[in-house]
């Protein structure tokens, strides 16, 4: 047999982006829409993408989580302690998925997480301390409230993306995300979604001081 052809080398490191992320929440909150927005982003920008979403029984009212890897990856699963980003639409689901975040190492900062919860102060102190020590950035934002005020309760997911996009280490350009949202949302929700995205972004600019 031809040995030469059986050899495969990894793809050259042409990728400018290697991002691993977790999106978590509860069935009904629109975790899958968030996934689709980032998938659309990756496709538009020409980045390879692989990920895995929960189906089947977990769809019915239970915890929902998707793994998303943009860049040079083969496996759809994010390893614990490897995620650059965690977007969580629900506080308890956020706690349950925090361990995916990458701790700081070799002079590099840890991952970032953005959590939709009404009150930023009620996070468990020990856990907060643990994350701070590992330079994992935690940002709590009342996305539900913003979405409700803007008249579209179900768009908290978009508000959270907007908020996160304001962080200087968030790897996706807000303008590109905006285009992805425009592409993915249905016509009926497009206008309000974009407004909520902008508003979330402004809130992020205001409150993310790092």
């Amino acid at each position: 047999m031809n040995q030469q052809s059986a050899i495969r080398t990894p793809q050259s490191a042409l990728e400018r982006m290697n991002i691993q992320m977790i999106i978590s929440g509860v069935g009904g909150q629109g975790v899958l829409l968030v996934t689709r927005i980032f998938a659309a982003f990756a496709l538009r920008e020409g980045y390879p993408l692989i990920g895995s979403e929960d189906h089947g029984m977990s769809q019915r009212g239970g915890s929902v989580m998707t793994h998303l890897k943009i860049g040079n990856f083969d496996s759809p699963l994010v390893k614990k302690g490897s995620a650059d980003l965690l977007l969580s639409l629900e506080k308890n689901e956020a706690y349950k998925t925090l361990y995916y975040l990458k701790p700081a190492s070799n002079g590099q900062d840890g991952g970032l997480c953005f959590i939709n919860a009404p009150n930023s102060n009620d996070m468990n102190k020990e856990i907060k301390k643990y994350l701070q020590e590992r330079r994992i950035g935690v940002y709590v934002f009342g996305a539900d409230q913003l979405a409700r005020e803007m008249g579209s309760v179900q768009s908290a997911n978009i508000a959270l993306i907007g908020f996160a996009a304001a962080h200087h280490r968030f790897p996706f350009q807000p303008e590109k995300l905006r285009e992805a949202i425009e592409q993915v949302t249905s016509q009926r929700f497009r206008e309000v979604s974009l407004k909520i995205f902008e508003k979330g972004f402004l809130e992020g600019k205001k409150s993310i001081t790092e």
């Binding site: 509860v26 029984m57 977990s58 019915r60 009212g61 239970g62 915890s63 614990k80 302690g81 308890n92 689901e93 706690y95 349950k96 925090l98 361990y99 990458k102 701790p103 190492s105 468990n124 020990e126 856990i127 643990y130």
Partner: peptide
């Protein structure tokens, strides 16, 4: 890197399990 410490801390919160329903 181990995530065991963090997992233990979270387990200590006794969060409700969202079983499929």
């Amino acid at each position: 890197p181990s995530t065991v410490t963090l997992e233990k801390l979270v387990a200590g919160l006794g969060l409700p399990i969202r079983r499929p329903t």
